[in-house]
Design a protein around this nucleic acid. Structure first.
Length: 108
DNA sequence: AAGCTGACTATGG
DNA sequence: GCCATAGCCAGCT
C-alpha cells in the first residue's frame, strides 16, 4: 500500500473526537492540495487498513457528509458524529467552522 | 497493460 | 446561485 494512504489514515486517526476535517485539508497537509479525491479514495479503502480509521470525522469542505453512502448504514456516519457531540442537520454539520480541525494548523 | 472511476475542490459561465 | 469543466492520483476492471 502506498505511503499516501498510510499518511491519510495517520492524520485521520489524529482527529480528536467531536472535531472534523475536510478531504482537502488532509490533502493539503500531505503536500498534494487538490488531491482531495485521493483522500476520499483512501477512506473508501480504509477497510483494507489493519486499524480503525474514523472516516466519519472526514467530510467535504462544506461540512456535508458526502461519504455516508459508503458506510454500512447511511445513518451510521451521522449517528457516530452525534455520539461524539456534533450537531447535525441531516447530512450537514452545524457550526462546521467551529468544529473544523485543520491538520495544517493543528499539527505541522 | 490501458483506461475508468471516485467519500473533492476551485473556477468560470 | 446552480451547472459544467478541469485538475488531482492511486486503485480497480
Amino acid at each position: 500500500m502506498s505511503d499516501f494512504f498510510n499518511q491519510v489514515y495517520e492524520v485521520a486517526k489524529l482527529i480528536p473526537a467531536g472535531r472534523v476535517t475536510s478531504y482537502g485539508a488532509i490533502a493539503k497537509y500531505l503536500g498534494s492540495p487538490g488531491a482531495a479525491r485521493m483522500v476520499g479514495w483512501a477512506m473508501n479503502a480504509c477497510s483494507s487498513h489493519h486499524e480503525f480509521v474514523p472516516a466519519h470525522r472526514v467530510v467535504n469542505r462544506n461540512g456535508l457528509l458526502t461519504g455516508k453512502n459508503h458506510f454500512d448504514n447511511t445513518n451510521a456516519m451521522q449517528e457516530l458524529l452525534e455520539a461524539e457531540g456534533l450537531q447535525l442537520n441531516g447530512d450537514q454539520i452545524l457550526d462546521f467552522e467551529e468544529k473544523l480541525w485543520d491538520p495544517t494548523k493543528e499539527l505541522k
